[in-house]
Structures are given as C-alpha cells and as structure tokens.
Nucleic acid binder design. Structure first.
Length: 733
DNA sequence: AGTCAGCGAGTTTTT
DNA sequence: CTCGCTGACT
C-alpha cells in the first residue's frame, strides 16, 4: 500500500479501506473528512482497481467540489475523469441528455429565485386570486416544500380534502408548473425532482447511470432532503457502494427541506451499513472545542460523539457585550485592524452573523476605516438588475423560448414598448401557441399594434443580428451592451451607482472570458453552456482564497470553511436564536439554531470572540434583547467571566494576535479575473471623438483607472459625461 | 408611454 | 429604513 495512507489516523484509514457496501462516516467538525474522502477515492483507484469514471462524488457547493477535485488530483492520475460536482449540476447534466423523455426540450432554462417569484405572481394573476390573500413568497415556498417532499399538484389537490385554501394552493402550484413548462424552464427543485422522475419512469436510463456510478460518495449528508435522498438511493441500490459523510450536529438547512433523519436513519435505509466515527478534531484548540461541546450538549437525540483535539488549550475564548450594534461593529473592526497592524493578515479573520442585515454595520465600518473586506452573500451578484438584464439578452439570443427573459428586456433600454403592447403580444402568443419572441417577430401580423410594431420588429432584428455573430463569449457580451445601448439605462442614476453597475457588467465579461479560458471541451463553449454555469453558481463559489481581505458572511455561508480568528456576532435572544425560531414553539427550531451556533464556533482554529449588543437598530427602531441563551449555555469560566457578573463585559484581551505558520500558496485554485484593458487609447485629451449615442464631442480628461481608462467627454448637445473607455467605444474623428 | 410621489409591507438562513 | 407597487399626471 502506498505510504501516503500512513498520514491517516486509524479511523480515517478504516473509512478509506471499507470500500464495498454502505458506509456512514460520522465526521465531527474539523475531523478531516475531506481528507478521508479524497484518500478514499485514491484508494478505490489505486488499490482496488476501480475505474475513475465509475466514481461519483457529490458536494453542496461548487467551491467544495473544486477543492475536492483538486485534492484528488494531487493524489492520483486520472482524477479528472471522476464526477465531482454538486447535486444540481449532476442533475442538469443528466437532464440535458434525457429530459426530452419528460416532454421538455434539452435546451431548457433554469429559473432562479426571482424568476420563480415572477412565475408565482403570474399564476396568482391567471387564477384571478386576491394578491393580498395569496402571496407569491408563500406560494414559492409552498411549491418548494411540495417538491422537496416529491408531492405533485395532484397529490396536493387530494390532500386538500375540500379545504378551499388548500385547493387553491394546489391549483396555483399546478398553474405555476404549467407556466414553467410553457417557458421550457425548470426551477432549482425541479432539477432534482425531474431527474428522479426520469429514473423512475425509464429503467434503461437508471440502469445506465447505476452502471456508470458504481461507487458513490456524498458529502454533507445531513443537509440532504427527501428528493436528494431518493436520487442517491436510486443510483446506489444496485451496487450498494454508497459512502455518505456528515455530522448531525451540523444540520442547518431544515428550512430548505433538509431532513436530518436521512443521516440519523441511514442504517435503516441501507441495511448492513457500517459506521465510522471521526472524532479527532485537527482544527481548533481545546478551549474552542469546549465551548462548542458545551453549547451542542443542550440538544437532544444526537448521535453519540466525543470530539477531542490535541492542539492544546490555546487562547481564551472571549465574550463582550456592547451597547449598540454599531458599537459592536466599530470595536470588532478596530480590534482586527489593530491585530493586522501587529502583523496578522486580514484573510485570517472572519466575521460571522445570523442575518444578512447585520452585515451593513460591519461593511460601513470597514469602508470608514479602510479595512479591505469581502462580503459573501447578501444581494447575489447574479441577482443584480443589470446582470439579470444582460443575461436575459443572452438567454433570448440563445433560445428565445424563455418569455420571462424576453419580457424583461423588451423595453430595456426604453424602446417605447409598454405594458399594453406586451399584453397584446402575450395574448397573440398564447392564442397561436407560440413563444413571446415569435410573437414579436410577427408583430406586423398582430392587429391593433399600430406603429409600435416597427419597434418590435427592430428589436427582433437586433436579436437576430446578435444571434448571427460568430464571436467568443466576452465579445458577444460586449456587442450586446453596445448594440442595445444598454449603458443608456444608467443615465438616470447617480454617478456612483452607475459606476458600480458598469463594474458589475465588466465583472460578468471577465467571468465569461474566464469561463472560456477554462473550458476543457473540444469545441468552444456555447452560450447555453455559459448560462448554465452561471445559473448554478453560489456566492461562496466566488470567494478567492488569495485575497488578503476580511470576510463577512452569514454562519450558513461559512459552513465547511475555517479561519484562524472568528468573530461570532449578534448573540442576542431574538436575533440568534432568531425570533422566528423562538415563536413557533417547536423545540426542533431552537435546536437547529443551536446547531448553527455550533457550526459558527467550530469554524475557529485559534481564536474565537463572541459578541452581542444591548440595543440594536432593526427595521428603523431599536430593539433591546438579552444575551443569547447560547452564550449562557457556555460555563462562564470558559469565557473568563465570573459567575456573578456574566453579562458584563468580558475581560480585555492583551494577547498578541494569533500568528500564522505561513500561508501555503495555492496554485490554480484562486482564479484571477483580468479585464482586458487597452494599453493605450486611440485618442488623447483635446481630440474630437464620436459616440454611437451621444454623437460628437471633445475629450476633456483621461484617467488611468485600475481596471480601465476613465474618460471625460464634452459632448456637443449632451454636455460632459464620464465613461469607461472599453464600453464607450469612442472613435477619433 | 414614461415619470414621480405617496403608501404599505416586510427580513432567517439558500443550492 | 428601504424596496416595490399603485395611481395620477405629463
């Protein structure tokens, strides 16, 4: 056996060598589960002679998948022929091949949360129900819950048992599905659901994939839901070589349908399953682990587990209560900055919080004190209006079947095509059973449109032109922005906002460039492939490990990550645990919050700081909350507090910042995006130039920005405009 | 068709 | 506080 396996501890080795049959690895936080998984893959290939393409490993995020793939590649050759992906991309790959058996086109589009909301709104409207009584938000989550439980609209109609409201909800669900079908679209839940349906209805396809994936590994198994379980179970039942890794104490996605029973009852689902526990923690000091154990021990019905570490006591865990949320933010950022001035790196620090709303105070302080930071989550990059607009153009160019995309851009930038026109188009489209874009193309045959039909035809022509371009992705993006004169939509905004949006568009362009450069296929990637990649990315996927920045994120976002120093903030009753979880009366809700707290604590390697505030601004007014029960569940002496004065300020920390061994350089993982920036411009200050929209003008100023040249042009008739050179496409005259 | 003021509602976590 | 929607006006 290869000597590298001696790097594993006994339990890890056991997990690696138990290759046949069902295996549950109960991996405590920081217990080296990724190591166990990657070595297991290597062992299967090297020692058991398993073909790499017979192995499938599934993770929850692309980032986790990439990391695992990379670590496997370091261990064995042919590592790249292993399927290491997320549930969702696996399903997309399968559906792209076979979804026609379910009556969809293989070029289906994927709806994100916003699209789902729009579809829900349409469904409510189509059934002519009171929007006050039937909220799209509630409908979307109802539908999602149904799908996670694999319940069809027909099932729900029956379950409704005559109840008016339940019946209406089921009908809305039905309607929603019809809308998606009409648009040849699938939502996130459908990806899983349809794949399972495909397997159930087509034994030949199921058999094909069962043969293909004889060895299956699932990461973060505690966060799988019912459909995901079904998917795994179907694939694994033939050979039974299923290895799942998880930690019931880290199950934090119940609200999304994750069913903790999947891991608690694994041995019932897969009879004869072997269980291996990884209990040695290689991440945190004992003081941090003590706190984690103290908190989680208040939960019931856990799998028996004793996490331990031999990394020594380490530094004391601290708890501080501040007067206000703003003060909390100010002091925390100040402390971190001080540590950095003494030699620490920002990238060794993470600030974690329960809700995204809390990020704002920290962000403001970072900006004010010039602390470099990176916020993960919040408003997703791909949810920003300008990005969605551009993507809607790309979707329309790619297929044109997605009515929602067409509707989004028909009048962006303004073309004088209003709602009344869109309604007529939609009516015509549904009467003739064609897509909205088809209707636009035939605008001159639609009665009652008048002169607006000319504008519609011009739009269709524009899309046709863009469709005919045979250029690389980043160039296509450029062309979309220019030929549609998209930047004119930014005129109404103030300069700062407009600049931010331009930067976002530039970032999208560089992502396209990056996508193309990393493409491994024989043919250059198609537009559809790019759109799919974009649809399935998560926020955390974009975190670049090389950046020396302080990280701000929710505790959910931090799952699976680790940091030298962690600030766990906002530890107040009503915030964490959240008011929602306290008011349902279901103790399971509080337990989930407690697991979340456990996850937060165990992200820390060497230093952990707990903070809270007496008063906190929320939705405009102040709330005054007591210190979180999770803090009081930790014995006060662990926090250096006397038992009597426990809610007072913790003792001050005089110790030096945690030193770091030396950053290990990571090759190829931190992908950098470079914007194509011209080395010089074909014009200079004082030259006369022409812009496609603003016409002629004189160059007043050229500033060399980080990413691009910024130019100030005095247009005859429009006055001075500041613009980015690469987008302005000015020509000298 | 576009614009703007005024109003009401809403925030837990997300692939 | 902030977003998004509605309805009246240009």
């Amino acid at each position: 056996m290869d000597p590298k396996y001696s790097l594993l501890n006994d339990r890890q080795l056991e997990a690696v060598q138990c290759t046949e049959g069902p295996l549950l690895i109960l991996a405590g936080a920081g217990s080296g589960k990724t190591r166990a998984l990657t070595y297991r893959i290597a062992y299967l290939i090297e020692e058991m002679g398993v073909a790499p393409w017979n192995i499938m490993a599934i993770t929850f995020t692309n980032k986790a998948a990439e990391e695992m793939k990379e670590r496997v590649l370091q261990l064995v050759d042919y590592g790249d022929s292993i399927w290491v992906t997320t549930f969702h991309s696996t399903c997309v790959r399968i559906l792209r091949r076979f979804i026609d058996r379910l009556g969809f086109d293989t070029d289906f589009t994927i709806y994100d949360a916003d699209d789902q909301k729009t579809a829900a709104r349409h469904a409510i409207k189509e059934l002519d129900l009171d929007a006050k009584m039937y909220k799209e938000r509630a409908l979307v989550s109802y539908i999602s819950d149904c799908k996670n439980e694999m319940l069809t609209p027909e099932d729900m109609l029956q379950d409704a048992n005559g109840s008016y409201r339940e019946t209406q909800m089921a009908r809305l669900y039905e309607r929603y599905q019809a809308i998606l079908k009409r648009n040849n679209a699938l939502d996130f839940d459908d990806l899983l659901l349809f794949t399972v349906r495909l397997f159930n209805e087509n034994p030949d396809i199921l058999d094909y994939y069962q043969e293909r994936f004889r060895y299956i590994l699932i990461d973060e198994y505690q966060d799988t839901n019912r459909v995901q379980f079904e998917f795994v179970w179907l694939l694994a039942k033939k050979y039974g070589n299923i290895c799942v890794v998880g930690d019931d104490d880290q199950s934090i996605y119940r609200f999304r349908g994750a069913d903790i029973r999947n891991i608690l009852e694994f041995e019932d689902h897969f009879p004869g399953a072997k269980v291996v526990k990884l209990e040695q923690n290689y991440r945190s000091t004992t003081r941090i682990l003590d706190c984690a154990n103290a908190v989680i021990s208040h939960n019931h019905g856990r799998k028996d587990k004793h996490l331990w570490s031999d990394l020594g006591e380490g530094r004391a865990v601290t708890f501080k209560q501040y007067e206000t949320g703003n003060q909390e933010a100010d002091e925390v950022i100040r402390e971190i900055r001080k540590d950095v001035q003494r030699g620490a790196s920002y990238s060794d620090y993470a600030i974690l919080y329960r809700t995204n709303a809390q990020s704002r105070a920290f962000e403001e302080r970072c900006v004010a004190m010039s602390v470099p930071y990176r916020m993960v989550g919040g408003v997703n990059f791909y949810q920003r209006a300008e990005i969605k607009d551009i993507l809607a153009y790309l979707k329309t160019i790619a297929g044109g079947k997605d009515d929602m995309a067409v509707q989004r851009i028909l009048n962006v930038p303004k073309r004088g095509i209003g709602q009344a026109t869109v309604d007529k188009l939609l009516l015509f489209a549904s009467l003739n059973d064609i897509s909205l874009f088809e209707a636009v193309k035939r605008a001159d045959h639609i009665p009652g449109l008048g002169k607006v039909s000319g504008k519609l035809l011009a739009f269709a022509h524009l899309i046709g032109e863009l469709r005919d371009l045979d250029v690389p992705l980043p160039d296509l993006l450029h062309e979309v922005v220019h030929r549609t004169d998209y930047l004119s939509t930014l005129d109404a905004l103030d300069e700062e906002q407009a600049e931010q949006k331009i930067e976002n568009i530039e970032e999208l362009t560089s992502k396209a460039l990056d996508f193309e450069n990393n493409w491994e296929g024989e043919q250059p990637p198609t537009l559809t492939e790019f759109l799919e990649d974009v649809a399935l990315v998560a926020d955390i996927d974009a975190v670049n490990d090389d950046e020396d920045r302080l990280l701000l994120m929710t505790i959910h976002g931090a799952k699976g990550l680790e940091f030298e120093n962690v600030y766990l903030t906002g530890l107040e009753e009503g915030l964490f645990p959240s008011y929602m979880s306290m008011s349902t009366g279901d103790p399971m809700d509080i337990e989930e919050e407690r697991r979340l707290c456990y996850v937060g604590i165990t992200r820390a390697k060497r230093a952990l700081h707990l903070t809270s505030a007496r008063a906190r601004m929320l939705r405009g007014d102040n709330m005054y909350n007591p210190v979180s029960r999770f803090v009081t569940e930790i014995p006060p002496e662990y926090l250096g507090l006397s038992t009597k004065k426990r809610t007072d300020e913790g003792f001050s920390r005089a110790e030096a910042p945690a030193p770091r061994p030396k950053p290990t350089p990571k090759e190829s993982f931190g992908r950098t995006f470079e914007i194509k920036k011209a080395s010089s411009l074909p014009y200079d200050v004082g030259d006369r130039v022409v812009h496609q929209r603003f016409g002629e003008g004189t160059v007043r100023e050229i500033t060399d920005g980080k990413k691009d040249f910024e130019v100030l042009i005095d247009f005859d008739g429009y006055g001075e405009k500041r613009m980015f050179a690469s987008f302005a496409k000015l020509e000298r005259i």
